[in-house]
């Protein structure tokens, strides 16, 4: 079979002809081909990069319409114009529906909203500097509890201290940092 567009269209006509006669395989092949045609048709005409419009949703809507209205195609008629007329009707429908409600894709709002996790509260460098400004036991305790996230009992065991002593050292260490870095 030559790859000329007209013969391809005729092949599609034949496929649909067999499909309406009850050939499931032919119908599947027709729908697969139809999906490609509709996708290409819609991609060129619809504002597919705009928010609230999903190209694949439209393709599926067209395929469903093709299915429920397939009795309106008659053997002997070219199937491609029929398919594209349905695609056009559904595309206009989708476009109108989209216009009635404002949908904004959150991805498109990156300029407006900043990701809170990306906003620095205290940088690793600042924390390191604060902890390093402490001495001896206080540094070890603050580092273990605040930076490494260990529990008090774990820290007490690691440093061979009582839990009460860990709490006191931790409190004093934080007070020292607060004094040095301006907040009490």
């Amino acid at each position: 079979m030559a790859p000329a567009p007209s013969s391809k269209r005729q092949a599609l006509d034949a496929l649909m002809g067999r499909a309406v006669a009850g050939d499931e395989k032919a119908y599947r092949a027709f729908l697969t081909e139809a999906a490609i045609i509709v996708r290409r048709f819609a991609a060129g005409r619809m504002p597919h990069h705009s928010a609230g419009f999903d190209l694949e949703d439209l393709v599926q809507e067209v395929l469903l319409a093709v299915h429920t209205k397939r009795h309106t195609w008659r053997v002997g008629e070219p199937v491609t114009p029929w398919l594209l007329a349905i695609a056009r009707y559904k595309a206009i429908d989708a476009y109108r529906r989209r216009g009635k409600r404002v949908e904004i894709d959150i991805d498109a709002m990156g300029d407006v909203f900043e990701d809170p996790s990306a906003m620095p509260t205290a940088t690793g460098h600042d924390v390191g500097r604060a902890v390093a400004s402490l001495g001896g036991r206080q540094q070890a305790v603050v580092s273990a509890l605040s930076v490494e996230g260990k529990s008090i009992s774990q820290t007490a065991r690691d440093l061979d201290m009582s839990e009460g002593a860990v709490r006191v050292a931790f409190h004093r260490g934080l007070s020292t940092i607060a004094r040095k870095f301006g907040r009490t």
């Binding site: 119908y27 393709v59 395929l63």
Partner: peptide
């Protein structure tokens, strides 16, 4: 749903859905 899944479903329903009376 994936478009391919939809196609498979519709193809399967081809014979069954074609029976209703159309005036």
């Amino acid at each position: 749903m994936q478009t391919d899944d939809l196609i498979a479903q519709l193809a399967e329903r081809n014979a069954r859905d074609g029976e209703s009376f159309v005036l």
